[in-house]
Amino acid sequence: MIIDHPLLGPRDSSEFTYLGDASLIDRPDPAGEDASSDFYDYAYLRDNPAGWHKELWFHEAGDRSWLVVTRNTVTHEISKVELASDVARAQGRSK
């Protein structure tokens, strides 16, 4: 697979390591009322779709940026690559 890095251009997927579903960006509020149940969902449960999947890749052998890659789990086609920091900011996170 070739991942089209937003800053560095097309890079081979072997330069990256994979973490998982991009929902891992949305860490629950540890002070929330249902924190224990929310963290169980966050840590262990996955949508695991067959089809388009937003996921976190780390450019370990490159610029060490975190990316959100939109990839089809049936065909391995990649439709979109964004910096995870941009995605997090767009969701209202400060950094």
Binding site: G20, D21, Y44, L45, R46, D47, N48
Partner: peptide
Amino acid sequence: SGRLLSLANMRLPIES
């Protein structure tokens, strides 16, 4: 499993 059990609205501790 993820695909089948999603028909019962279940999320599983599983990735394919």
